[in-house]
């Protein structure tokens, strides 16, 4: 009989995330994947700068903390030294899609055989709710107090769409954890992204649309609704590239 318990690859440390934040769910999915693939002893994770800066405390495997945006470069270094290790980065939208865009794009272009878990919540959480590269047009944040004006502040980056054009990318998939069905899909995607690495297929990125109730100023339930009504239409879920798959 299946029992609900903490994945072995998740440490017994209470997560610091705000109630209603999706980081916790994604952490769990990553840890379950590591357990199920039996790779805890060979996995090395790279933590970002952002709300997930303490991710190194939560995964029961070797971890390195990276400077803001540099996780794919750090992961590249780790992976090149021990190619049989499974190396993943866990990054937010500011880290991956603003300050670390170059590292992300070039790790993808090199087909670096790593797994990238990308949390997109359309806002900077760590510094208290500023505009992110993924902030939606019109969205109010601390640094877009009149709503993101695309005339002056430009358009959001659609990372999966962008990276899907690169030959080095094995898998680019966008998911969400807003309901049970999507959580199941996300789990499958994350597992595939790790399996790809074991099979030496190249760069895999799973973008997970996530909520930030605290900085959005919404209750956790309202935040899920906001994500469904605003983020998913702008960032459609699905597989953008699967080198060896159906698409």
């Amino acid at each position: 009989m299946a029992t609900f318990k903490r994945p072995h690859s998740l440490t017994d440390i209470t997560l610091h995330y705000c109630p209603g934040c999706n980081h916790g769910i994604v952490h769990r999915l990553v840890a379950e994947t590591i357990d199920e693939l039996g790779i805890e002893g060979t996995t090395v994770g790279v933590a970002p700068v952002g709300c997930a800066v303490f991710a190194y405390n939560y995964f029961e495997c070797d971890m390195q903390e990276a400077a803001h945006g540099r996780a794919p470069a750090v992961a590249t270094g780790i992976k090149r030294v021990n190619p049989d290790n499974v190396v993943f980065t866990y990054q937010g939208d500011g880290d991956l899609a603003a300050i670390g865009t170059a590292e992300t794009v070039h790790a993808a272009a090199r087909g670096e055989n790593i797994t990238v878990i990308f949390i997109n919540n359309a806002i900077y959480g760590m510094t208290g709710g500023q505009m992110a590269p993924t902030t939606l047009p019109g969205q109010v944040t601390q640094t877009s107090p009149y709503g993101r004006d695309v005339q002056t502040q430009g358009y959001p980056l659609k990372i999966c769409e962008m990276l899907s054009t690169l030959d080095g990318v094995a898998l680019a998939e966008r998911c969400a954890v807003n309901n049970i069905k999507n959580i199941t899909e996300t789990k499958k995607a994350i597992k595939k992204a790790f399996q790809n690495q074991i099979d030496k297929k190249g760069f895999s990125i799973i973008e997970v649309l996530s909520t930030c109730p605290t900085n959005w100023g919404l209750s956790p339930v309202e935040a899920l609704k906001w994500l469904e009504e605003n983020m998913i239409p702008y960032y459609p879920l699905g597989v953008y590239k699967d080198k060896d798959g159906d698409k």
Partner: peptide, 26 residues
């Protein structure tokens, strides 16, 4: 061995950080 031409000096030094962390002479 590995020679990797990085996309920038910033990336290169962070690759060094990763590789050094993984125990290599870099």
């Amino acid at each position: 061995g590995t020679f990797l031409q990085a996309e920038s000096e910033v990336a290169a030094i962070n690759m060094v950080y990763g590789a050094a962390g993984a125990g290599a002479r870099v």
